[in-house]
Amino acid sequence: MTYIDAAAAPLPLHIVSTSRYGAVVNMFHGDLVNGAAWPANNRALYVPVRLPMAALVARMLLANAGNITGNVDLGVYDEAGTRLTSAGSTARSGVNTVQYLDVTHVQIGPGVYYLGIVASSTVGTFNAIVTTVAINRIEGVLAEDLGATTLPATMTGVTVTQAYVPVFGFTQSATL
């Protein structure tokens, strides 16, 4: 009898905050909402993701809801909080669609990373998973109030007070 060893199944092209690589405890509580308002002007949220293999960060993405007021910045940090790549402050565009933001491509290895997002306006709304503050803290989600809509070179995350996780992340593809 012969056996075939398992190969590594490639990571999906899209790695997002609300997936098996991100905030997994949410699946026991979370409900998808159409239009969560951002909690505070220029507040950043950092959502940890765990990657079992290397990935290419080619573009950042977020799921816009019905109000796209303001700017956002999205990026990826290593586990120590050092920014690896980010888009820079970018006007939101595309009501009720997924918006892609170009970044300098960066190859990251297996490990824990933070997806970072900051939004300028509490008027703007996002596709998000409503959860609880407790679950978010258990997941390791962090927050930081920034003075601008630009993710910092080094994140200084503090205890999160939001009870939702926006749907955002990155794709490994420049086109898909």
Partner: peptide
């Protein structure tokens, strides 16, 4: 199926 909400979810997950 879930109106437009899941469209953004599936889109974010890479569905086409």
């Amino acid at each position: 199926v879930n109106a437009v909400t899941i469209a953004r979810t599936t889109d974010a997950l890479g569905c086409k």
